[in-house]
Simulated assay, not measured.
Amino acid sequence: MSPANPVAGDERRRLVEDVIQRRILSTELRPGQRVNESRLAEELVVSRTPVREALLRLEGQGWVLFDHGRGFVVTPLSTDEIRETYPIVAQLEQLALTSTGPALRGLAPVLSEINGEFGASTDPARSHDLDARFHRTLASRCGNGRLIALLDRHWQALHRYERFYMTHPDDHRRSVRQHDAIVAAIASGDVASAADQLVDNIIGPMHVLLERLR
């Protein structure tokens, strides 16, 4: 018998991981809800092994946690995580922006284009994706790989919260206006103002989400 193909196994695990993430983000799987491993394996026509591997990876990323009485459950939304993570992201993104140098001004046209699509979006999932693209693009030219890696980790932690934030049209419109202000400051070469506007854009949702979760 030939050995199992490890690449195929990785692909199955990534497929399951992606499905679980999408269901958590869409709230098909709600905070605190049990993930039924057997049902998911049957639905995706895979064995329990890639399902368990995917859940273990997602546990490490904070998407799910293991409850000894119920198995894997979707991690509840946490005011502590919001309160602790958003200020870190604000400082890291500000550092990325201020350390980009002359290349920053050249990002203004593409940031403006992304924000135009963001403003026109009426779908929360697409709005979230475009908002994430705006912030990733803004940090993309800082030239500091370790900083980008740190941001990636914390952006991942805030993924669910940002998706929740984008379901409210008023908050979406506020973010569009803030992005416009950031782009205008970058285009005019006012890095200090762009950095201040960026921090406001990140910290504002923190306060809104804390209030909602209360």
Rank of each mutant, 00 (worst) to 15 (best):
R105T: 14
Y86R: 04
S121C: 13
G106L: 05
P87Y: 07
E84H: 15
R83V: 02
Q91I: 02
G116C: 01
Q94V: 02
T98A: 00
A120E: 07
P87D: 01
A90C: 08
A120P: 09
A108P: 08
A90W: 10
R105P: 00
Y86F: 15
T122Q: 10
I88R: 15
E113G: 05
A108Q: 11
T85Y: 08
L104S: 05
P109V: 08
T100I: 03
A90F: 08
V89A: 07
A96I: 05
T98L: 01
R83Q: 14
E113P: 00
S121A: 15
G106D: 15
S121D: 07
A90R: 11
P109Q: 10
A108F: 10
Q91M: 01
L92F: 07
L104Y: 05
R83C: 01
D80P: 00
L104C: 04
T79G: 01
R83K: 15
A103P: 01
L95M: 14
E113A: 09
F118C: 12
P109H: 05
E117R: 09
A108V: 14
L97T: 12
T100Q: 05
E93P: 04
D123N: 15
V110W: 13
S121T: 09
I82Y: 04
S112C: 02
L97S: 05
S112M: 03
T100D: 00
